[in-house]
Simulated assay, not measured.
Amino acid sequence: MDEVKMGILISALRKISPSLFVIALLSLISFYWMQRSVNLENELAQMSERHTTERLVAANAYNAELQRQAALNDELTRQLIDRQNQITTQLLQLGSSIDGAIKNDGNIYSGIGADSLCVYRRAYGYSCK
């Protein structure tokens, strides 16, 4: 601002009564703080919205992980049941094979005849040959 304008401003301010000057100054200060308050409220609302969005994203990710874990649990449970059924079937077959092998072997000194030995080897995954 040049000196002429500054001089006009100062002379205008001298003509204003002190109480009017204080009221104007307080009004400016009040306006500034009101604007600052509105800005802070807007910023707080944005932060709250971002926080809510982040929590929602985290909750969705957690739910997706829970669903993945549940699906994996279901698959492993199904595999376990299938394997248990296979083992039960094998045990039943082995039990009937043992009974038949003992009858076919008859009275043998060692207690294990050819048929019993074959059942034993098959139980451990070997062939009877």
Results as ranks from 00 to 15, higher is better:
Ile102Glu: 01
Asp74Met: 06
Ser110Gly: 05
Leu117Thr: 00
Glu49Arg: 09
Asn73Cys: 07
Asp2Thr: 06
Leu25Val: 12
Lys129Ile: 12
Glu65Ile: 07
Leu56Val: 05
Ile23Gln: 14
Glu75Gly: 06
Leu66Pro: 01
Ala61Glu: 11
Ile112Pro: 00
Arg14Phe: 02
Lys15Thr: 02
Gly113Val: 02
Cys118Phe: 01
Tyr126Cys: 02
Phe31Ala: 15
Arg122Gln: 13
Cys128Tyr: 09
Gln86Trp: 06
Leu13Asp: 09
Ile8Leu: 14
Ala45Gly: 06
Leu9His: 02
Gln93Pro: 01
Leu9Trp: 08
Leu92Ala: 11
Phe21Met: 12
Ile102Ser: 01
His51Leu: 06
Lys103Met: 07
Lys129Pro: 14
Ala71Pro: 01
Ile102Leu: 08
Asn39Cys: 02
Ser30His: 04
Gln79Ala: 11
Pro18Asn: 07
Ala123Tyr: 01
Tyr109Cys: 02
Leu72Asn: 15
Ser37Thr: 15
Phe31Pro: 01
Leu28Cys: 12
Tyr32Phe: 09
Asn42Lys: 14
Thr88Phe: 08
Ser27Gln: 04
Ser96Pro: 00
Leu72Ser: 13
Ser30Arg: 04
Ala12Glu: 08
Ile87Asp: 06
Ser17Asn: 11
Ser48Pro: 02
Leu91Pro: 00
Met6Ile: 05
Cys118Ala: 10
Ala24Phe: 14
Leu56Asp: 08
Met34Asn: 12
Phe21Ile: 10
Leu94Gly: 01
Leu94Arg: 06
Ala61Val: 07
Val22Tyr: 13
Asp105Ser: 04
Ala45Gln: 12
Ala24Ile: 08
Arg55Lys: 15
Leu20His: 11
Trp33Tyr: 12
Ala114Gly: 01
Ala123Asp: 00
Leu44Gly: 09
Tyr126Gly: 04
Leu26Pro: 01
Gln86Lys: 13
